[in-house]
Every structure is written in structure tokens, then in C-alpha cells.
Design a protein around this nucleic acid. Sequence first.
RNA 1: GGGUCGUUAGCUCAGCUGGUAGAGCACCGGGCUUUUAACCCGAUGGUCAUAGGUUCGAAUCCUAUACGACCCA
Length: 517
Amino acid sequence: MTNEKQTQNQNVDQYIDENKLIAQRRTKLKMLREKGNAFPNSFRRDSYAQDLQEKLSDKSKEELVELKHFAKVAGRIMARRGPFLVMQDMTGRIQTYIDRKKLPKDLVQDIDTWDIGDIIGVEGPIHKSGKGDLYIMMQSVVLLTKSLRPLPEKFHGLTDTEKRYRQRYVDLIMNAESRKVFAMRTQIIQYLREFLLARSFVEVETPMMQVIPGGATARPFETHHNALDIPLYMRVAPELYLKRLVVGGVERVFEINRNFRNEGLSTHHNPEFTMVEFYQAYADYHDLMDLTEEMLRGICNEVLSTTSIQYGDDTYDFSKPFARMTVKESILHFNPKLTEADLDNFGNAKIVAENLGIPTKESYGLGKIQIEIFEKTVEGKLKDPTFITAYPTEVSPLARRNDENPFVTDRFEFFVGGHELANGFSELNDPEDQAERFEAQVAEKDAGDDEAMHYDEDYIHALEYGMPPTAGEGVGIDRLVMLFTNSHTIRDVILFPHMKPYPGVGELSSKGIKAVK
RNA sequence: GGGUCGUUAGCUCAGCUGGUAGAGCACCGGGCUUUUAACCCGAUGGUCAUAGGUUCGAAUCCUAUACGACCCA
């Protein structure tokens, strides 16, 4: 024993450049290697912690003794409590009891060297403690993976926001709340997918790298294809490809995937974010508003089991029909001093905008000014689920004009909690109108708006073959998940959100790529 | 882009008007062994984000930088 300790100390000296706690664990790993396979992969579990808790918690101490329910469970050691080890697997936690008198002496000695964070496999019958908690009466146990880095303190866990995002693996080990958010994200996406599949929508994948970035007004990321020696753009939206598929006869089509926009980071913006976009032929924007209501209410009922959504201090009722009003109606509603005449006349609207402190550009038409007024005075106030319709044609280059009033389009955006969650419209399927709209976008681009769209000749070509009357919509998944998980920053619903790298991190060194300390 | 705040042990945090670094948990040693943030005794652990400056003396005051959080545009 004393000899062993001396060896340990010598080994610690070898790792003096490292944290002492890590050095100690490295020494333990070294001893494991000397004994044999330090990373065995022969243990097979037959039970999960949560299943055992659900199945057996009702049984009494005596019933469990009689039942002799044997289980093999694997997981990470999260705490030691007296003679118990608390283990955590992907479903939950269960403890295992170390009977020091009955287990072989050398095994007990080994167990005493194990650390919180180590991964073990345990086998034995399920019993219940005097205080009513299930435990596995350890009959055999094996250390499967030695953990070299100490975990955060068990009570407070990892709260440092920066570390939670940069080292999500530690966050997921420590914070059940974080695990729950991402589990719900998965369930919400799965619900959306099944909802659309059940209605005969076909899931497809369209290019993430595009020669002409289109489908949204946003600045793209640029990259380069070496073999072809051409610039390529990460897509800002899949829209134009999905509509090409509608031309091709895929009359109900959807894609759940990432979009990339070269813009700032904020609590509501990540440079890559997930959208579901879907297109339905022989439908209009009213049909999609109905579909959206059904879909969101479905998530409430099936995933959350409630239609009363708690978000911060507010509660939103998803059981009632969602409010619907036009852009103009909403501006007048939230600006009772304004009149229709203030919004319908370019000169008047410009004065209203300037009084609100909105900087206007030469190129802005009436429609753009109306939208600026809307964003400044209305958007943040749309707390309860609301559809805003009749967006100006000027700011809707891919949407169908309204039959009665060509100044606006048959378009809606959907808002909850003051944030836009979805955008949909009856699609513009008139190729000549679409060509003119592209030309207007190109003019704006030439005037210096680097978010304006390119002219996509092939898309016009496709429309010239004939696209059936169609309605389409995109829903921002990240913001949807934020809403339904009561998360107030997008970084809480993206597993690996973009963070500014530390200087030098990512540079190749002799030891490989530098990691965050 | 602007403003405010933050960065101290592996983690969570104290550290007063400048006087030489603290706690809890974790870890290590010992005790106890059906515990529930297990408990009891003892020990170890720090480039106080980084670089300058002021000072006899800086975690503390000043400047710059890095990263983060929040608010505003």
C-alpha cells in the first residue's frame, strides 16, 4: 500500500504542468492500463434507470426482496452518499449500494479509487432503502471509462453561461433542465415532421450551397468551389428549390434543415438556424394559416400537454382561435393617433416614420415605410398568437399580389410574444410578374442594399413551365422551441451555438487543435 | 456599433476606504457505513482574464485588450 502511494506521488510529479486533480486521475488511469484493458467495452445493460424507477417504485421493500428483479445498468457516477453511488444514464438516475462486507476486498479497494464522473456498469437485484429509494444491490461492477476531468460541484452544477455553451457536454451531464430543453426540441421537430407526412407532404433535401442565393432578403455566407473555380453561397432559404419541385409535380413538399445568414448574433439570431418550409399546391394563404393553427395547437396538446404557454411573465392561450389582422389595421390599432390617410400617402407616411426616429432611405417606397413603422410600433406588442396579413408587395418579392389590391400580397406573418415565428403566402406563380420583381430587387442591390435578392433566371425558367396555384410557409424552429421551452435566448435551444473563439483557439499546434481551457 | 456589468481554487461564490488569498462542494488522508446537497476530523490546492500604469505596497485604483451577460440602435 505504501509502495503504491509512493508510485502515485511520483506519477503526479510527471503531470505537474496539469491541474492536480487531473494529474491524480491520470495516475489512476495509468494504473488501470497496467492492470489490463482500461477501456473495456464488454458490458451490456438490460435496463435504464428511469424505466426501473417507473416500474418498481410502487413496490414495497419486502415485495422487491421477493421479486428478485435483477438489472444491469450502466452510467456515470454523479455522487457518493454514504455507501451508495448515484448513477446517471440517458433516462435518469438510480443508486447502487456497496456492501463492503460481502463484496470481494480487492473490488472494494478498486471502488474506493473511483471518482465522480467515471462510467461504470453494475449488476444486481433491485432493492429499496429505508428512506424509500430504489437501489441496485451491487453484485458485480466494472469500471468502463475513467473520467480525467472533475465535474462541476454537484449542487450548483454548471451555471457559467459561457461554459454551458462552449462545453455543452458538461452542461448536458450536469443540468437536467438543459437535457429537457433539447429533448423537447427533438419532440417538437418530430411532431412537425409527422404532422406534414400525415398530410401527404413529401420530405426532400435541396442544396445548401447555391450558385445564386435566393428565397429571402438576407446577406449570405460566401464560399468557393475549387474544382469549378466558382463562388458558392450557403443558402439563406430553400424556397426557390422547393417551388421548382412543385413545378416538377411534387405538389406537397417540405424540408426541415438549416439556413445560413451572415448577420449579427443576438438572443434571437444565430448565423445558422433551422427552418421547416412547406409548400402545398391548390391552396392559398388562408389554408396555411388554418394549417399553422392546427399544427401549433397540436404541438401544445401532444408535446406539452397544455395550450396555456408560460413565457417569462406572460401566458399565451393557444386554445383560442389566433387573432388575424392586416399590417395596416395593426398599425392603426397600436397607434390610435394615426389615420388611414397617414399610412396611404407616401409623403405623410414618411413624416410619420421620421417622427418615430426611423431613418428612411431614398429607395424606400410606401410599402417599405409602412413595414418600418410596423416593426417599430407593432411587432414587439404582438404577444398573443396573431397572424398579420396583407404585406406590401414592395417587401414581398416572391408572394402573389392580392386580387383586389395589388399594392399588397396574399401573405401573412405569425407572431407570439412579440417575435416573428412564421412567414407564409400564396406563391407568385406568374413568371412575368416574378421577373419584374426580381428586376426591382436587382435595382435595390445596385443601389447598395446587399440583402436584396439576385435575379434567378433558372427559377423564372421553371415558372414558365407552369407552377400550379400554391401556398408556402416557413417556420423558424429555434424560436418555436424557445417559446415552448420558456427559453429567452436562442443559445439555450441550439446545442452548439456560435461563440466568438478565443484568440488562438482552433489554430493547429504540435498538440493538435487548441481547446478551450 | 454604443452603454452598463462581469472574469478570484476543478465548480459555486466571499474578499470593506490599497497592507500580501478565503468559504462550501470536489479532490487527498483518516473515521463512519442504508445514504438523500450523506456526515465527522485533518491536509492540499491560486499567473486574482491578459498587458501596462499609479504606489513603499494592487485581487482592490487607472488605461488598454480579450471573452461573456444584459440593455439600446
